[in-house]
Design a protein around this nucleic acid. Sequence first.
DNA 1: TCAAGCAATGAAACCGATTGCATATATTTG
DNA 2: CAAATATATGCAATCGGTTTCATTGCTTGA
Lengths: 352, 352
Amino acid sequence: MGKDITIYDIAKEVGLSPTTISRALNDHPAVNLKTKQRVSEVAGQMGYRTNLFASNLRRQHTHTIGVIVPRLNSPFMSTVISGMEKAATEGGYNLIISQSLETLQKEQANAKTMFDSRVDGLLVSLSYETDDLHHFEPFISRGIPVIFYDRVAEHEQCTSIVIDNLQAAYKATSHLVEQGCTNIMHITGNLKRNVYSDRLKGYKYALIDNNLPYNEQNIIVNNLSEEAGEEAAQQILKMKKLPDGLFVSNDTCAVSCVKTLKQAGISVPADVAVIGFNNDPICRVIEPNLTSVNYPGSEMGELAVKALILRLNGSTEGIASNTINLRSELIIRESSLKSKVAGKKWGQLAPK
Amino acid sequence: MGKDITIYDIAKEVGLSPTTISRALNDHPAVNLKTKQRVSEVAGQMGYRTNLFASNLRRQHTHTIGVIVPRLNSPFMSTVISGMEKAATEGGYNLIISQSLETLQKEQANAKTMFDSRVDGLLVSLSYETDDLHHFEPFISRGIPVIFYDRVAEHEQCTSIVIDNLQAAYKATSHLVEQGCTNIMHITGNLKRNVYSDRLKGYKYALIDNNLPYNEQNIIVNNLSEEAGEEAAQQILKMKKLPDGLFVSNDTCAVSCVKTLKQAGISVPADVAVIGFNNDPICRVIEPNLTSVNYPGSEMGELAVKALILRLNGSTEGIASNTINLRSELIIRESSLKSKVAGKKWGQLAPK
DNA sequence: TCAAGCAATGAAACCGATTGCATATATTTG
DNA sequence: CAAATATATGCAATCGGTTTCATTGCTTGA
């Protein structure tokens, strides 16, 4: 439990003032090269480590980035965080992470904690409930950059990082139409969130552009959980006329739908073609394998951190402080292939 | 971008000294109740927030917990982290998280960063490669508590939080024996890590106790990834005599094995009964559903943080500063049920 | 030879909260 | 009523780097 070494201790040892030690350690140009070398050598020997509080206190920044996320334990979000951690470490920043558990109240509490912790910048993906952005005002009014990712909101001062959800949904829906679907349902999440409302729009426009009727009865809004998927499937099974296509806004829910439908004797994709969203690992486990939209989580996380660090380093340039779009892509698998793969599928189901 | 309010500003406003403001804000007993109320009222109005650097600098602690984890984006680990975040927030602590990506080198770098960030305590799950604990010495020698969870190591000064891997593996293997398996293989991870070596032991002892031969040829050690699972399955398919049981140390790998075996025309569980580990969501998606060991990730995370906070608050009691064991349980599903469920299974595969 | 210019270093203030010790007033006790 | 004890508050030092503004000693050019 030895005492910590400070620059004063080093100063005494080397026979210089703390000022010079500080400068030497920070590679200040006005310090003689030999002095720097000697200082860094002695510092190493003595086991010196800088006291970040003292430094932060004086410099008024923390080298810490705050992250507020709806849930940590989803395949997508943990991948995003993983990317963030990577970029943050590379850039010499620490990450403080908290989850809103999809409630506005916790999101506000988290924002407050982040504010008190004086993070240099904030990375936010909004909860289901969030419908105003007051709790981020303290940051914005003090010039602390806030960047939204994935679940974003419009704000004058904030950058958003997203995929083109509308386009992705448009492509997914169009693909179902190409497969011959004419009665396509859509299951999605809370429409307050851009990701879900944009996907709904993409779905809708694709129908309209293909001269198919858009019908509100064909929309189910739920929380996209496993249970919700089961319920949605039950609801679908009760319909007079079954849909022949189903576009679901995440994979967890889509998979749970498929399972329930299969148990009820419905064949996927022959009776109902299904597409999910996120391209989680389960897509390649469910039978039939699930067509899904590949979502670049890790890149999104990295990009968010990099964009933030760029801003913190003063580059008002570089990022037009607006919206950054990432590419996504439709990964086509059996679950949506009505025509050609029917044979293949039966072949698989009867291995002998 | 207004300047921050300090206790000096409040002092001026209320007409008291900064000392009293500080004490009032910290609910110090020597301050008059009315004064406290007035101070907290004015502080609220002025939008005061405490400067944690100044406070930390003076108090010499950070209210921050460091977490080093092999990977963030695994279902199990993200669940653990989720539990940690919950407990930390409740206890008024922040979490700084970094990942070692299974390399010793990154783990050491992470430890250094955590040390420089002066975390109050450290929560660690070891990387595959780690074989010495030098990089944690700086913490230990300064009395900063280090707690290992899941992937732990023996250390005089450190608490470990684990499940009884030996027992869990013993039960899993015994279950396979009960199902009539006599030639059981085991796929597991790097044996440096307790979780894998203990599971191997459990497997071994179960065989011995059931008078079955233990054979090193029946052990495959890999990194338990999806690809590794496929390779392992290929390797198994080339064997002269196929095993009739397979116990895999995680679900990702187990599922990938099952997929590959099925593609090769092997029936699970009829030909090979399979058990995984972790009880990830995919267990209930793969066909047949995978028997697995349920691993209380969220609880483990919560417990780790709570134990740490207890230690930080001086309770040398409470935790016998040794090993804490969590309960795990074998969740039996179709993939391991040779006998009774064969009929049920065929019923499912031929829905019509 | 001397003023100007530069390189290297230091003294002291500062960041904002905390705390040991001292002080001033109020209350109690003998 | 004086002494003893509480009660409430303030002074000033402290935590450990950072930074502004000198200062010192040399080199350089006229």
